[in-house]
């Protein structure tokens, strides 16, 4: 009874077992709402499951791999470019350039397709450029903010330890913010999946789960749409978990002060 009250009280730290019970209950509740929903536009779990089987036979697995590889490539490239640009903000000359880059996040991807088409030689390259651009403008914004908000005291500590300014950058900006870089990567990698379907819709030559989703959506095959969305969600969660795991391995100090650890 006390635990039931605790899960509804603010700022309570609850045991792992309570978390398991709570999440289990919420999943069952969600499933029940889905199963018993009177809405005709919401396909029932059984229909989605059947559609998933059919889609799998039609090559959903392969399309998921194609999309996953494309997303991974884009995230890796975007991460390298964005981190580099964000770290370069320690040099005053690059700050306006990075500020400009971060403002480009307001641009529509569709409007940029033409320019990227001119640059790309294959459909894969076009999708990659579009994704890298879309993820990078958000990634660089988040990471530049992380760099800008490092307290003066951290730089001073490095300086009092006889470090030259390049070493200060390495110690304070790169190593010192590695945990936050992983967190920004995590957020933007998720955004990559969101944009992937749009990008795969723009260039369908290679297929991919995005093209598949748009096809099903066009023909209003809602169970299939749900099945694909569910697959993307599961793959995205696995990717999110993987990045989280990397963060825990390389930055074990990151969550030591968190109340809800």
């Amino acid at each position: 009874m006390n635990q039931a009250i605790e899960v509804f009280s603010p700022n309570r730290v609850i045991s792992k077992q309570t978390v398991r019970w709570m999440v289990g209950f919420q999943l069952v509740l969600l499933f029940c709402i889905w199963f018993f929903s009177p809405t005709v536009f919401l396909p029932k779990p059984k229909e989605v499951w059947q559609a998933l089987g059919e889609m799998w036979m039609e090559g959903l697995g392969g399309e998921l791999i194609t999309s996953f590889v494309l997303n991974l490539e884009a995230i890796a490239l975007a991460a390298v470019l964005s981190l580099l640009m964000a770290y370069l903000t320690v040099i005053p000359f690059f700050r306006p350039i990075v500020t400009l880059l971060s403002k480009l996040r307001f641009l529509s991807m569709v409007g940029l397709t033409f320019f990227f088409t001119l640059m790309a030689t294959t459909g894969h390259e076009l999708k990659l450029y579009l994704l890298v651009f879309s993820v990078s403008v958000f990634f660089v914004t988040g990471m530049a903010e992380v760099v800008a908000s490092i307290p003066k005291g951290e730089f001073d500590l490095a300086r009092t330890l006889r470090m030259n300014e390049w070493r200060v950058v390495y110690e304070v900006v790169i190593l010192g913010q590695a945990d936050k870089a992983f967190e920004v990567l995590r957020q933007n990698a998720a955004m990559g999946w969101m944009m992937l379907t749009m990008v795969e819709g723009i260039s369908r030559s290679e297929g991919g789960v995005g093209a598949m989703l748009l096809n099903q959506n066009k023909h209003f095959h809602l169970p299939a749409v749900f099945a694909i969305q569910l697959s993307i969600l599961l793959l995205g969660l696995a990717q999110d978990y993987g990045i989280g795991l990397l963060r825990d391995v390389f930055c074990p100090y990151a969550d030591l002060t968190l109340e809800r650890k």
Binding site: R159, T160, M163, E171, G176, C251
Partner: peptide
Amino acid sequence: AGEVGVVAQDYPLFEHRTVMSNLLLAANQ
């Protein structure tokens, strides 16, 4: 900078390094 040690009020250390690593970093300088 570095010739005079500074211990600020909040006792700053590199949070991403262990105690040993923090001290080795200083000693190696």
